[in-house]
């Protein structure tokens, strides 16, 4: 994430004190030195509410991931019930795609990964995407 120029924040309804001990007792055993990003204490759930991920019955923020661009607009989000974890490679792909679009004005078709062809939107492309992009390129 650092090489992509992305700032990471994590958030749960745990207190900062719990974050500290989690870092000390478990995270530092997964990652040497522990995680280097700010761990937000959303004890009230109000931040989770603002992002639509707070589950009042359980008092927790469910798994949600938001990609925010340098203009502070949300570009992508993924919200899941908690039992399935994230796919970090897909997040990285989305970051690279949005950064490419922002830098070039091109757009990235389904299945795009860095190195694959992009599309240049415009009147000439309308109705002609079939010449540029084949369904097998989605995979």
């Amino acid at each position: 994430m650092k090489e992509l120029g992305v700032e990471v924040f994590s958030a749960s309804t745990d207190s900062r004190f719990v974050h500290k001990i989690w870092q000390a007792e478990e995270l530092s055993k997964m990652i040497p030195g522990g995680v280097q990003f700010p761990m937000i204490a959303d004890a009230s759930g109000l931040i989770g509410q603002a992002y639509g991920v707070f589950e009042p019955a359980a008092g927790v923020d469910i798994r949600g991931r938001f990609l925010i661009d340098p203009d502070f607009n949300i570009r992508a989000m993924e919200v899941m019930t908690p039992e399935v974890g994230r796919n970090v490679n897909e997040l990285i792909r989305q970051i690279r795609a949005f950064q490419h679009v922002r830098a070039t004005g091109e757009v990235t078709p389904a299945g795009w990964v860095p190195g694959k062809p992009t599309l240049k939107p415009g009147p000439d492309l309308a109705g002609n995407v079939w010449k540029e992009w084949k369904p097998e390129m989605a995979f």
Binding site: A11, D14, P38, D61, R65, F66, I68, Q99
Partner: peptide, 26 residues
Amino acid sequence: FETMKLSDSKGKWIVLCFYPGDFTFV
């Protein structure tokens, strides 16, 4: 321990991740 505003990072790409709880499984 610090206090921060998300908008302090305006101008950069930001990933904000919510998760159900410390010390849980996934």
